[in-house]
């Protein structure tokens, strides 16, 4: 069964760039969300076992989404994909439950490295 993967970003270009960086042979079912609320709904429906999450979004930020995932006890593997490359942003995201951090602009190598590290490849 393909792995349900959710890509969350307010920018459609950015979502496409992330998806384009996926390994070509990765057996996944990709869903997309353009905001935090939509993302949480999708995760609750089982569409995001792996979630690629932007931090800087209007309304609900990626930090808010991580906090809410934890509060609701949702089971997913969150990878932050962000242009906010300050060490404190990564630290805060990890404290809120993000397992990995990939910098924008997304490099395929970096993303594959994370997937390999956690046994998704």
């Amino acid at each position: 069964m393909p792995l349900p993967v959710l890509v969350v970003d307010d920018s459609s270009m950015s979502r496409k760039l992330t998806i384009r960086a996926f390994p070509g042979d990765w057996d996944v079912e990709v869903s997309q969300a353009s905001g935090g609320q939509e993302a949480l709904d999708a995760i609750e429906r089982g569409l995001g076992h792996v979630v690629f999450l932007d931090l800087t979004m209007p309304g609900m930020s990626g930090f808010d989404v991580l906090a809410e995932i934890r509060r609701r006890g949702l089971d997913c593997f969150a990878v932050v994909v962000s242009a906010d490359v300050q060490p404190k942003a990564e630290e805060q995201a990890r404290q809120l439950g993000a397992m990995a951090f990939v910098r924008k602009p997304v490099k395929a190598d970096a993303l594959h490295g994370v997937l390999r590290e956690y046994g998704f490849l």
Binding site: S11, S14, T56, S82, A83, D84, V85, Q86, K104, P105
Partner: peptide, 8 residues
């Protein structure tokens, strides 16, 4: 957004 992240 990406440029802003670098500036921040």
């Amino acid at each position: 957004n990406i440029a802003m992240g670098q500036a921040g």
